[in-house]
Amino acid sequence: MMARPRREPGGLGLRPTPGGLGSRLRGILGIGPTPSEATWEELEEALVAADVGATTALELVDATRARIGADASMAEIRSGLTEEIRERLDRVGSGRFALGPPPAVILVVGVNGTGKTTIVAKLAARLSGEGHGVLLAAADTFRAAATEQLRLWGEQLKVPVVAQRPGADPGAVAFDALAAAESRGIEVVIVDTAGRLQNKTQLMAELGKIRRVIERRMPGQPRHVLLVLDAVIGQNGLAQAEAFAHDAGVTGVVLAKLDGTAKGGVAVAIADRLKLPIVFAGVGEEARDLAPFDPAAYAEWLVSG
């Protein structure tokens, strides 16, 4: 694989997005000394523009209003809104990922093209960097060359990869991987799965089956089921989180591709309405580009980025 040309990093916490919510907010908040009805409406619109969703945006604005009172200053509105967002993310445990005592199995799920395989590799890099033995299971046996993609990552990270032929039963791959990890004394297994749209009943049922195979082979596992969401996702993200939570028992969300201008604001709605924590943020294509999700920084970025 070739290295991409380097570029100035953007995205979460790294550089403000030109024309983003922050500058919009500053524009809005510059209108007058006290907020008018129009100000609140524009505030709501700015949140919608960050993909927070119309319903959640309205709730956030109303909550901010209730929190700071009608005659608050613009700065107070801004910090009040940031605080509302941060709290919603924080109270469901966002950013607090504890691997737990060994062994630990992490199942990685999501729709097609969100960056699951890359996140699996980044997680592997992170955990092996922390001194854990890690093994990867290539349970995406469907997409052409998905297994090769994971193998290449394995070689680069010097992490073993358990795979079978294309079209093999993904449950069997997971089973093999657990057995291999056990016999080699490896404590962390990360299972990559095929992308599936959440309205495909049969594929969602397959995910449930993979989960059950793991449960039976290793009671108490998978301890973590991470849903990978693309930061560019719109309101369908909510439907995705709901379906994967129901069928795969998602324990946390990874917000991938946060290095662009997309903010993935639907994550706020997911945390708030589905009570799912956002645990990691993916911010690039290299193995080290994975950070624990920081609710305060993210809320700040949403409002001032």
Binding site: M1, M2, A3, R4, R143, A144, A145, A146, E148, Q149, R151, L152, W153, P166, E285
Partner: peptide, 26 residues
Amino acid sequence: VYRPAAVDQLVQLGDQVGIEVHSRPL
């Protein structure tokens, strides 16, 4: 030429549907 195994993916799809794929060495 950047994503790991992207070329493999297209080559495999080409095999499946019987359409030629042009690729160059890594």
